[in-house]
Protein backbone atom coordinates (compact mmCIF):
# COMPACT_ATOMS: atom_id res chain seq x y z
CA UNK A 1 0.00 0.00 0.00
CA UNK A 2 2.67 2.34 1.17
CA UNK A 3 4.99 1.16 -1.56
CA UNK A 4 2.31 1.63 -4.19
CA UNK A 5 1.77 5.24 -3.16
CA UNK A 6 5.47 6.00 -3.22
CA UNK A 7 5.87 4.38 -6.60
CA UNK A 8 3.01 6.41 -8.03
CA UNK A 9 4.45 9.66 -6.72
CA UNK A 10 7.88 8.79 -8.02
CA UNK A 11 6.57 7.91 -11.46
CA UNK A 12 4.63 11.16 -11.60
CA UNK A 13 7.78 13.13 -10.83
CA UNK A 14 9.70 11.05 -13.34
CA UNK A 15 7.30 12.02 -16.14
CA UNK A 16 7.54 15.71 -15.27
CA UNK A 17 11.31 15.45 -15.15
CA UNK A 18 11.40 13.76 -18.54
CA UNK A 19 9.28 16.53 -20.04
CA UNK A 20 11.63 19.15 -18.63
CA UNK A 21 14.64 17.33 -20.03
CA UNK A 22 12.95 17.15 -23.40
CA UNK A 23 12.18 20.86 -23.43
CA UNK A 24 15.71 21.77 -22.42
CA UNK A 25 17.29 19.50 -25.01
CA UNK A 26 15.07 20.75 -27.77
CA UNK A 27 15.81 24.38 -26.95
CA UNK A 28 19.53 23.78 -26.80
CA UNK A 29 19.58 21.94 -30.09
CA UNK A 30 17.61 24.74 -31.63
CA UNK A 31 20.04 27.36 -30.34
CA UNK A 32 23.07 25.52 -31.73
CA UNK A 33 24.25 26.78 -35.10
CA UNK A 34 23.81 24.59 -38.18
CA UNK A 35 21.16 22.00 -39.03
CA UNK A 36 20.63 18.90 -41.09
CA UNK A 37 20.07 21.00 -44.22
CA UNK A 38 23.74 22.02 -44.08
CA UNK A 39 24.81 18.38 -43.88
CA UNK A 40 22.63 17.36 -46.78
CA UNK A 41 23.86 20.26 -48.84
CA UNK A 42 27.41 19.31 -47.97
CA UNK A 43 26.93 15.70 -49.03
CA UNK A 44 25.45 16.93 -52.29
CA UNK A 45 28.70 18.77 -52.87
CA UNK A 46 27.25 22.16 -52.05
CA UNK A 47 23.96 23.87 -52.75
CA UNK A 48 22.70 27.43 -53.10
CA UNK A 49 20.40 29.27 -50.73
CA UNK A 50 17.30 28.26 -52.68
CA UNK A 51 17.93 24.55 -52.40
CA UNK A 52 18.75 24.95 -48.67
CA UNK A 53 15.48 26.79 -48.12
CA UNK A 54 13.66 24.04 -50.00
CA UNK A 55 15.18 21.34 -47.78
CA UNK A 56 14.25 23.31 -44.66
CA UNK A 57 10.66 23.66 -45.83
CA UNK A 58 10.49 19.94 -46.59
CA UNK A 59 11.59 19.04 -43.07
CA UNK A 60 9.56 21.75 -41.33
CA UNK A 61 12.71 23.52 -40.16
CA UNK A 62 11.43 26.89 -41.35
CA UNK A 63 8.55 26.88 -38.89
CA UNK A 64 8.69 29.09 -35.76
CA UNK A 65 10.40 27.54 -32.74
CA UNK A 66 7.19 27.06 -30.76
CA UNK A 67 5.48 25.26 -33.59
CA UNK A 68 8.41 22.90 -33.99
CA UNK A 69 8.49 22.31 -30.25
CA UNK A 70 4.74 21.62 -30.10
CA UNK A 71 5.00 19.19 -33.00
CA UNK A 72 7.89 17.38 -31.37
CA UNK A 73 6.30 17.15 -27.93
CA UNK A 74 3.08 15.94 -29.47
CA UNK A 75 5.04 13.26 -31.28
CA UNK A 76 6.83 12.13 -28.13
CA UNK A 77 3.56 11.82 -26.24
CA UNK A 78 2.42 9.34 -28.88
CA UNK A 79 5.77 7.51 -28.66
CA UNK A 80 6.95 8.96 -31.96
CA UNK A 81 10.42 10.46 -31.63
CA UNK A 82 10.50 11.74 -35.18
CA UNK A 83 12.27 10.65 -38.33
CA UNK A 84 15.99 10.53 -38.90
CA UNK A 85 16.81 12.35 -42.12
CA UNK A 86 20.26 10.96 -42.14
CA UNK A 87 19.57 7.30 -41.38
CA UNK A 88 16.31 7.35 -43.26
CA UNK A 89 14.44 5.53 -40.54
CA UNK A 90 12.13 6.37 -37.63
CA UNK A 91 14.22 7.43 -34.61
CA UNK A 92 12.34 5.07 -32.27
CA UNK A 93 13.27 2.11 -34.47
CA UNK A 94 16.88 3.22 -34.69
CA UNK A 95 17.15 3.57 -30.94
CA UNK A 96 15.34 0.38 -30.00
CA UNK A 97 17.63 -1.45 -32.35
CA UNK A 98 20.73 -0.06 -30.59
CA UNK A 99 19.41 0.09 -27.05
CA UNK A 100 19.97 -3.57 -26.04
CA UNK A 101 23.70 -3.36 -26.80
CA UNK A 102 24.05 -0.25 -24.65
CA UNK A 103 21.92 -1.62 -21.84
CA UNK A 104 24.01 -4.78 -21.84
CA UNK A 105 27.24 -2.83 -21.65
CA UNK A 106 26.05 -0.28 -19.10
CA UNK A 107 24.52 -2.79 -16.70
CA UNK A 108 27.36 -5.28 -16.96
CA UNK A 109 29.95 -2.56 -16.37
CA UNK A 110 27.98 -1.07 -13.49
CA UNK A 111 27.39 -4.41 -11.77
CA UNK A 112 30.95 -5.55 -12.37
CA UNK A 113 32.34 -2.30 -10.95
CA UNK A 114 30.01 -2.52 -7.96
CA UNK A 115 30.76 -6.14 -7.11
CA UNK A 116 34.49 -5.94 -7.57
CA UNK A 117 34.63 -2.50 -5.95
CA UNK A 118 32.86 -3.74 -2.84
CA UNK A 119 35.00 -6.87 -2.62
CA UNK A 120 38.21 -4.86 -2.95
CA UNK A 121 36.89 -2.28 -0.50
CA UNK A 122 36.05 -4.91 2.09
CA UNK A 123 39.39 -6.66 1.74
CA UNK A 124 41.37 -3.47 2.03
CA UNK A 125 39.24 -2.20 4.92
CA UNK A 126 40.09 -5.29 6.94
CA UNK A 127 43.79 -4.60 6.56
CA UNK A 128 43.97 -0.84 5.95
CA UNK A 129 47.76 -0.85 5.97
CA UNK A 130 48.28 -4.06 4.04
CA UNK A 131 49.93 -4.28 0.64
CA UNK A 132 46.63 -5.05 -1.06
CA UNK A 133 45.04 -1.98 0.47
CA UNK A 134 47.78 0.26 -0.93
CA UNK A 135 47.51 -1.48 -4.25
CA UNK A 136 43.75 -0.84 -4.35
CA UNK A 137 44.26 2.82 -3.48
CA UNK A 138 46.85 3.24 -6.23
CA UNK A 139 44.81 1.33 -8.75
CA UNK A 140 41.71 3.31 -7.86
CA UNK A 141 43.47 6.61 -8.30
CA UNK A 142 44.88 5.46 -11.62
CA UNK A 143 41.52 4.26 -12.92
CA UNK A 144 39.84 7.45 -11.81
CA UNK A 145 42.35 9.82 -13.36
CA UNK A 146 42.94 8.06 -16.67
CA UNK A 147 40.60 9.18 -19.48
CA UNK A 148 38.26 6.41 -20.59
CA UNK A 149 39.27 6.47 -24.26
CA UNK A 150 42.94 6.29 -23.30
CA UNK A 151 42.39 3.30 -21.00
CA UNK A 152 40.35 1.70 -23.77
CA UNK A 153 43.05 2.14 -26.40
CA UNK A 154 45.71 0.90 -23.97
CA UNK A 155 43.70 -2.24 -23.25
CA UNK A 156 43.16 -2.72 -26.97
CA UNK A 157 46.88 -2.55 -27.69
CA UNK A 158 47.67 -4.90 -24.82
CA UNK A 159 44.99 -7.55 -25.13
CA UNK A 160 43.90 -7.42 -28.76
CA UNK A 161 47.08 -6.59 -30.62
CA UNK A 162 50.01 -7.84 -28.52
CA UNK A 163 48.39 -10.84 -26.93
CA UNK A 164 45.36 -11.63 -29.00
CA UNK A 165 42.97 -12.70 -26.28
CA UNK A 166 40.03 -10.54 -27.21
CA UNK A 167 38.58 -9.19 -30.46
CA UNK A 168 39.39 -5.61 -31.40
CA UNK A 169 35.95 -4.19 -31.95
CA UNK A 170 32.26 -4.77 -32.52
CA UNK A 171 29.88 -6.98 -30.65
CA UNK A 172 29.74 -10.20 -32.69
CA UNK A 173 31.86 -12.15 -35.08
CA UNK A 174 29.72 -12.59 -38.24
CA UNK A 175 31.70 -15.65 -39.30
CA UNK A 176 30.60 -17.63 -36.27
CA UNK A 177 27.56 -19.86 -36.54
CA UNK A 178 25.96 -22.02 -33.90
CA UNK A 179 23.36 -22.12 -31.20
CA UNK A 180 22.49 -19.59 -28.53
CA UNK A 181 25.46 -20.41 -26.31
CA UNK A 182 27.98 -20.11 -29.11
CA UNK A 183 26.72 -16.59 -29.77
CA UNK A 184 26.53 -15.77 -26.09
CA UNK A 185 30.18 -16.71 -25.64
CA UNK A 186 31.08 -14.68 -28.70
CA UNK A 187 29.32 -11.57 -27.37
CA UNK A 188 30.89 -12.11 -23.97
CA UNK A 189 34.37 -12.21 -25.54
CA UNK A 190 33.67 -8.95 -27.35
CA UNK A 191 32.36 -7.42 -24.16
CA UNK A 192 35.37 -8.00 -21.94
CA UNK A 193 37.47 -5.02 -22.94
CA UNK A 194 34.64 -2.44 -23.23
CA UNK A 195 33.29 -3.55 -19.86
CA UNK A 196 36.71 -3.32 -18.22
CA UNK A 197 37.26 0.11 -19.70
CA UNK A 198 33.91 1.48 -18.67
CA UNK A 199 34.19 -0.08 -15.20
CA UNK A 200 37.63 1.28 -14.50
CA UNK A 201 36.46 4.72 -13.42
CA UNK A 202 33.57 3.50 -11.35
CA UNK A 203 35.52 0.64 -9.85
CA UNK A 204 37.79 3.27 -8.36
CA UNK A 205 34.89 5.22 -6.88
CA UNK A 206 33.14 2.18 -5.45
CA UNK A 207 36.23 0.56 -3.98
CA UNK A 208 37.30 3.80 -2.32
CA UNK A 209 33.87 4.43 -0.85
CA UNK A 210 33.28 0.87 0.31
CA UNK A 211 36.74 0.83 1.90
CA UNK A 212 35.87 3.98 3.83
CA UNK A 213 32.39 2.89 4.90
CA UNK A 214 33.59 -0.60 5.80
CA UNK A 215 36.31 0.85 8.00
CA UNK A 216 33.68 2.94 9.69
CA UNK A 217 31.23 0.09 10.27
CA UNK A 218 34.01 -2.29 11.36
CA UNK A 219 34.76 0.17 14.15
CA UNK A 220 31.12 0.59 15.15
CA UNK A 221 29.49 -0.45 18.39
CA UNK A 222 27.26 -3.08 16.80
CA UNK A 223 30.24 -4.80 15.23
CA UNK A 224 31.83 -4.91 18.67
CA UNK A 225 28.56 -6.44 19.91
CA UNK A 226 28.70 -9.02 17.12
CA UNK A 227 32.25 -9.94 18.14
CA UNK A 228 31.22 -10.08 21.79
CA UNK A 229 28.56 -12.62 20.78
CA UNK A 230 31.32 -14.98 19.69
CA UNK A 231 30.37 -14.92 16.01
CA UNK A 232 32.93 -15.97 13.44
CA UNK A 233 35.04 -13.40 11.67
CA UNK A 234 33.09 -14.03 8.48
CA UNK A 235 29.72 -13.44 10.13
CA UNK A 236 30.99 -10.27 11.76
CA UNK A 237 32.37 -8.83 8.53
CA UNK A 238 29.86 -9.97 5.94
CA UNK A 239 26.65 -10.15 7.91
CA UNK A 240 27.00 -7.32 10.38
CA UNK A 241 29.42 -4.82 8.90
CA UNK A 242 28.90 -5.17 5.15
CA UNK A 243 25.14 -4.82 5.10
CA UNK A 244 25.48 -1.50 6.87
CA UNK A 245 28.32 -0.35 4.67
CA UNK A 246 26.37 -1.03 1.49
CA UNK A 247 23.83 1.80 1.68
CA UNK A 248 26.23 4.65 0.83
CA UNK A 249 27.80 2.59 -1.96
CA UNK A 250 24.41 1.84 -3.50
CA UNK A 251 23.47 5.50 -3.24
CA UNK A 252 26.64 6.50 -5.03
CA UNK A 253 26.10 3.86 -7.69
CA UNK A 254 22.64 5.31 -8.32
CA UNK A 255 24.03 8.82 -8.62
CA UNK A 256 26.80 7.62 -10.91
CA UNK A 257 24.37 5.88 -13.21
CA UNK A 258 24.15 8.91 -15.48
CA UNK A 259 27.95 9.05 -15.63
CA UNK A 260 28.06 5.40 -16.64
CA UNK A 261 25.61 6.08 -19.46
CA UNK A 262 27.64 9.03 -20.72
CA UNK A 263 30.88 7.08 -20.29
CA UNK A 264 29.35 4.42 -22.51
CA UNK A 265 29.27 6.91 -25.40
CA UNK A 266 33.07 7.18 -25.33
CA UNK A 267 33.68 3.49 -24.75
CA UNK A 268 31.31 2.48 -27.55
CA UNK A 269 33.10 4.82 -29.89
CA UNK A 270 36.52 3.39 -29.05
CA UNK A 271 35.40 -0.22 -29.40
CA UNK A 272 32.86 0.32 -32.20
CA UNK A 273 30.24 -1.19 -29.91
CA UNK A 274 26.96 -0.98 -31.85
CA UNK A 275 25.01 0.85 -29.14
CA UNK A 276 23.41 4.22 -28.55
CA UNK A 277 26.81 5.79 -27.95
CA UNK A 278 28.09 5.16 -31.45
CA UNK A 279 24.74 6.26 -32.84
CA UNK A 280 24.94 9.46 -30.81
CA UNK A 281 28.45 10.13 -31.99
CA UNK A 282 27.51 9.65 -35.66
CA UNK A 283 24.36 11.71 -35.29
CA UNK A 284 26.14 14.63 -33.70
CA UNK A 285 28.67 14.69 -36.54
CA UNK A 286 25.89 14.94 -39.13
CA UNK A 287 23.59 17.17 -37.05
CA UNK A 288 20.81 14.63 -37.12
CA UNK A 289 18.71 16.52 -34.60
CA UNK A 290 15.79 14.09 -34.11
CA UNK A 291 18.15 11.20 -33.45
CA UNK A 292 20.24 13.19 -30.98
CA UNK A 293 17.11 14.32 -29.17
CA UNK A 294 15.81 10.77 -29.13
CA UNK A 295 19.03 9.44 -27.66
CA UNK A 296 19.08 12.15 -25.03
CA UNK A 297 15.50 11.27 -24.18
CA UNK A 298 16.38 7.61 -23.77
CA UNK A 299 19.46 8.44 -21.75
CA UNK A 300 17.37 10.52 -19.38
CA UNK A 301 14.89 7.65 -19.19
CA UNK A 302 17.66 5.19 -18.35
CA UNK A 303 19.00 7.43 -15.62
CA UNK A 304 15.56 7.91 -14.12
CA UNK A 305 14.88 4.18 -14.17
CA UNK A 306 18.33 3.58 -12.68
CA UNK A 307 17.58 5.98 -9.84
CA UNK A 308 14.21 4.38 -9.16
CA UNK A 309 15.89 0.98 -9.02
CA UNK A 310 18.49 2.35 -6.61
CA UNK A 311 15.75 3.57 -4.32
CA UNK A 312 14.15 0.17 -4.20
CA UNK A 313 17.40 -1.65 -3.59
CA UNK A 314 18.19 0.78 -0.75
CA UNK A 315 14.84 -0.03 0.78
CA UNK A 316 15.67 -3.70 0.69
CA UNK A 317 18.95 -3.11 2.50
CA UNK A 318 17.86 -0.59 5.10
CA UNK A 319 14.71 -1.21 7.18
CA UNK A 320 14.75 2.39 8.41
CA UNK A 321 13.95 3.62 4.90
CA UNK A 322 11.13 1.11 4.60
CA UNK A 323 9.52 2.43 7.76
CA UNK A 324 9.85 6.08 6.82
CA UNK A 325 7.21 5.93 4.10
Amino acid sequence: MNLLRITTIRLFYAVILLMAVLLLNFTMMHLAPGDVADTIAQSMGGADEEVLAQIRTDYGLDQPFLVQLARYMGGVLSFDLGYSYYHNAPVTDLILQRLPATLLLVFTAQIFALLLGVVLGVISARKPNGILSHFVTFFALFGYSAPVFWTGILLLIAFSLKIQWFPVSGMRDVTISGGFWVHAVDVARHMVLPTLTLSSIFLALYSRLSRATMMETLGSDYVRTAKAKGLTQRQVVYKHALKNALSPVITLAGLQFSAVVSGAVLVETVFAWPGLGTLAFESILVRDTPTILGILFFSALMVIVGNLLTDFVLRLVDPRLRARA
Binding site: T225, A228, G230, P319
Partner: peptide, 20 residues
Protein backbone atom coordinates in the same frame (compact mmCIF):
# COMPACT_ATOMS: atom_id res chain seq x y z
CA UNK B 1 32.37 -15.09 24.10
CA UNK B 2 28.64 -14.60 24.29
CA UNK B 3 28.34 -18.09 25.70
CA UNK B 4 30.24 -18.34 28.98
CA UNK B 5 31.27 -14.72 29.32
CA UNK B 6 29.11 -12.04 27.80
CA UNK B 7 29.03 -8.31 27.85
CA UNK B 8 26.65 -5.41 27.62
CA UNK B 9 27.82 -1.98 26.62
CA UNK B 10 27.36 1.61 27.53
CA UNK B 11 25.57 2.81 24.41
CA UNK B 12 22.32 0.92 23.82
CA UNK B 13 21.44 3.30 20.99
CA UNK B 14 24.30 2.10 18.81
CA UNK B 15 25.11 -1.35 20.19
CA UNK B 16 22.45 -3.15 18.18
CA UNK B 17 22.77 -3.61 14.45
CA UNK B 18 20.26 -1.25 12.79
CA UNK B 19 19.52 -3.50 9.82
CA UNK B 20 18.47 -6.70 11.59
Amino acid sequence: RGNEISMIFQEPMTSLNPVY
